[in-house]
């Protein structure tokens, strides 16, 4: 087994477009959950409306890609308002259930074969990204330090990591301001913040919109990388983003970034490892124990366990501060 090669592949994944998608989704969730304490379980829905917004504007309606981006963003704002108006006054777990339900509704609708003319059914929409790749300054494979990516991927990475840096800077500036202080206060105890004369509902709504829009950018990148398909916006993606956030540490500006890189490195490495360990004539792991197909499930098994253990033992993330944990038992 070529461990060095597997590490290389895993590193390529850790910095590749997949990591960017999950990182952006997690930055959005960090605003929701990490700073405001809002349980948005429908980040996949925000990604889907943005991704499908641009794809449908281009493929179905024949307008320009750039207009599509604006429409996609407008749709994420509308979705945030639609979800927020009924639920932000209710208990935290209600928001969780409404958002997850909304994300599933969106996935059902865009995947419906009766609406295939608009959204392409289960096949989704492809080939709407020409305007984006026309701007690609790279003409060949790019990389360094033994890692390399295709020119298309590298262009997505350039823009994608650019967005990550931009949003991280924005979160940094926002969260050190009095505005961020109000959000953090709401996370700790919204009644206390209310008693100090802050319009908690308005702040929660702003948080939901901002995090949702950042999630929308995750949807854009997802569409650029792998076309838009209902399966790319399943509920699982939201939960992966939560894992990434908790791994890197919620309410930390760079938490999602660290989390996404580590997450994708581990997931890809596990995948490559078990894949290699179960293939060939004389596999490392006997076929009776684990077939090649079963190997591809190992990452989900580890993912589930990791999410549980993180939440139980290190809710402040792997780089977290023990001081915070000492305060309350949560």
């Amino acid at each position: 087994m070529d461990i060095a090669n597997q590490l290389t592949l895993a590193l390529e994944q850790a910095f590749g477009p997949s990591a960017i998608i999950i990182c952006l989704a997690a930055i959005g969730l960090n605003v929701h959950f990490g700073y405001t304490g809002l349980l948005n379980f429908g980040q996949a829905g925000f990604m889907a409306v943005a991704g499908y917004g641009v794809a449908s504007i281009v493929s179905t309606w024949g307008f320009s890609f750039w207009l599509g981006l604006l429409v996609g963003l407008a749709l994420t704002v509308v979705l945030a308002l639609l979800l927020g108006i009924p639920t932000l006054r209710l208990r935290a777990d209600y928001l969780a259930i409404v958002t997850i339900a909304a994300a599933e509704i969106i996935r059902f609708v865009v995947g419906a074969s009766s609406l295939r003319g608009y959204f392409g059914g289960q096949d989704g929409l492809q080939q709407y990204t020409g305007s984006f790749f026309a701007l690609n300054p790279y003409s060949s494979q790019m990389g360094g330090l033994g890692l390399s990516w295709s020119k298309a991927d590298f262009w997505i990475m350039t823009v994608g990591w650019g967005l990550v840096v931009l949003f991280s800077l924005m979160i940094f500036l926002l969260m050190r301001s009095p505005w961020g202080r109000v959000l953090k206060g709401i996370r700790e105890d919204e009644d206390a913040v209310r008693s100090l004369g802050k319009n908690v509902y308005a702040y929660k709504m702003q948080s939901l919109v901002i995090g949702g829009v950042i999630g929308g950018f995750a949807g854009f990148v997802s569409g650029l990388y792998q076309s838009v398909q209902p399966t790319n916006f399943a509920t699982d993606i939201t939960f992966f983003a939560y894992t990434v956030l908790l791994l890197g540490g919620a309410a930390r500006v760079l938490g999602p970034l660290a989390g996404a890189v580590i997450f994708w490195f581990l997931i890809s490495f596990l995948d490559n490892f078990f894949s290699a360990a179960t293939s060939g004539d004389n596999p490392l792991i006997p076929t009776a124990l684990m077939s090649h197909q079963q190997a591809s499930l190992m990452r989900f098994v580890f993912l589930g366990v990791a999410l549980m253990l993180l939440m139980i033992y290190r809710p402040q993330g792997i780089f977290g501060d023990r001081r915070e944990l000492a305060i309350d038992g949560r």
């Binding site: 109000v182 206060g185 996370r187 105890d189 913040v193 305060i327």
Partner: peptide
């Protein structure tokens, strides 16, 4: 008492 646990004392004050 509703203090905001994971905010510092001065941040609690400034929020007011």
């Amino acid at each position: 008492t509703k203090v905001l646990s994971r905010l510092s004392v001065i941040e609690n004050m400034l929020l007011g």
